[in-house]
Design a protein around this nucleic acid. Sequence first.
DNA 1: GCATTTATTTGCGTATACATTAAAGAATGC
DNA 2: GCATTCTTTAATGTATACGCAAATAAATGC
Lengths: 225, 225
Amino acid sequence: MKDQDAKTLSNTQRAVRDLRRMILSGELAAGTDHLESELAETLGMSRTPIREAALMLESKGLLEMRPRKGVRILPVSSDDMREIYDILTELESLAAQRAAEAGYSEDELAVLAGSIAKMDQAIEAEDLEAWAEADELFHQELVRLGGNQRVEAIVAMMSDQVRRARATTLFIRPLPVKSNEDHRVVFQAISEGRPDAARERHREHRLQAQAMLCGILEKHRLNSL
Amino acid sequence: MKDQDAKTLSNTQRAVRDLRRMILSGELAAGTDHLESELAETLGMSRTPIREAALMLESKGLLEMRPRKGVRILPVSSDDMREIYDILTELESLAAQRAAEAGYSEDELAVLAGSIAKMDQAIEAEDLEAWAEADELFHQELVRLGGNQRVEAIVAMMSDQVRRARATTLFIRPLPVKSNEDHRVVFQAISEGRPDAARERHREHRLQAQAMLCGILEKHRLNSL
DNA sequence: GCATTTATTTGCGTATACATTAAAGAATGC
DNA sequence: GCATTCTTTAATGTATACGCAAATAAATGC
């Protein structure tokens, strides 16, 4: 909505949103430098909100501010992806466990179930973009159900970085059929209230995903996305 | 050093450091509000670097910027501590596992061993402050040995918040004798290269620490530190 | 020609000014 | 006396100005 855009959001918030979008879409490519004044002109505002936005994105790990060199969009190496997946594995597994402990009703698990259904449809239609979107929803919702807001925040942060790598690997990787089975198993464990199973199944799922993704990255020498 | 202070550090960096120090020391008490202009005057600089510093500390979870209400120093509830400890448990256990896998030499483990020795001495002397400091060193070094920089960053962030709670509970809790035994066991597992043991022992250690700390907080109705 | 020093440019860090707008206080009507 | 509207205050969000230091270009000496 343009209302939200101009009225309720401050320029700083707009800058955060727009810069993030431009980074994730690749419009601001990894490894490139951009002067504060350029960005300011591009987004039609002064340097002040740009600097504030950049500061926030810096602490989220998306860019780096280097005096006189401009704002540098951080590349994500395959080593970075290893680090990130290690963290996602631990924190999402915890979330899965907690979600199972919470004993959610069928209604409360509707979004999670829905995301699995969407993934199935996407595979059926071989629509990888749709699959990736639904997969992201699954993980996001899983973490939400885990009930730890800090975990949610951290995972969201890491997901921003994963997204770029995923965009590149999506069409190289095998069709994520196995992945869907994993999700279903995790879902089962959660809805039946089996914390340990939920935790362990999700953990295995993530470890496999990591091995697959990092394997591809290294094989194709994709060392900075 | 005053040299570093005025020369090499920017005002923004000074503000980050000083505000953080003031928050952790309690000089800026949890739950209190402070106008940007007040803080600016206190630290002898203009609002600009204060705002930038506040933005960074906000993303680290130490404070919150609320329009027209000023900067609010975030209190840490016992629920917050639960969340934080859940994360620390997972990420530190991972670090312990990885450290054990890495097969570090005795030299490389010297700092870790040293921190344990310091804790023993501190208990001997019943110097709780010294114990807390050494304990923090142990956990910090453990995470460093884990070799995941993002884990390091997250744990450091969380530790900032734990520190405040610890300051209050330090003199209520039982003498941390058990805690020292735990550390030694974890250290053994790491130096002998037993990843699974390192992971599990550390995990148990953290779970107990969490139960103890949150128990105290709730018992004493310390709901915002 | 190359190295070294000196100008010059330029981007950043920070102070400051100002418009905006939420909140607090005063005033008015009932 | 209470609610409502108007006024005033004051804190923020943002633009702008400017000094300083770093990087680049120019100039000088060899």
